[in-house]
Amino acid sequence: MKPSNFDYVKPKTLEETLTLLGDGGRDSVVLAGGQSLMPTLNMRLSAPDLLVDINGLDELSGVKLEGNQIRIGALTRHVEVENSSVIAENCPLIALAMPHIAHPAIRNRGTFGGSIALADPAAELPACICALGAKIEIVGPGGDRKIVAKDFFKDLYETDLKDGEIVTAVEIPVTSSKTKIAFDELSRRHGDYAMAGLAVNAIMEGKKIENISICFFAISATPVLAEGAAGILNNGILDDDSLGKAIQQLESDLDPLPDLYASRALKMHYAKELLKRNLESWMS
């Protein structure tokens, strides 16, 4: 299928972009990497009046180390994040996740900010930034603001973004020498959206765990932080007993949504299995 027709404009500045998006009379959509937007247009699942192509906004692109934060511009392509030494050294969780995102040709176009703003429940990056306690920078008609990642994802493809706002960057705290991470997902075919996935970020000294964030994706409508399970593990020793309890706690922490290939029970089983096999590997 071909998309319904739309107007196309490629602003040169952020101000111009916001003006275009702020024109309430038109149904406008931001075109960043386009790797999820274009299929929905091609299938005529959405038919906006105007595409605002932000690919000319160079200031939104790039990975920078700023003190103890990494700042990833919203327009930074997946391939750039994947190959970034700053990311590899300071945020290995993201580095681990990148190869799981679709395929090379998609990663050449798809953007970090686009993945966050789309909020696909099965996407890797929203879960990673939730686990990492990242902040999302937003610019809109009402000015700039920042929001903690876990508060950004509201519901299925629904975020805290208001009309006329765009994501400009994500700020991620750099890891410390004691940071322990895990990233894992189960997908039928390499590069597919996961049937279930897990991103974990913690501080670990010996077997003692602190500040653990356990975030699941492809389980529910949004990335889900398993806070009960994290509470069980936090400030304790990771052993079979505590892990067993944390796994059991997932029954309360998670409310899986079934999809075409996975029932609710399977999703729950996978969540437990992912937590088990990844944290067990921390014990060995």
């Binding site: 386009g34 790797q35 192509d53 040709a105």
Partner: peptide, 13 residues
Amino acid sequence: GEIVRGCLVLAAQ
């Protein structure tokens, strides 16, 4: 210089 999906990029881009 990079491979892309031709159906996911607009000609205008």
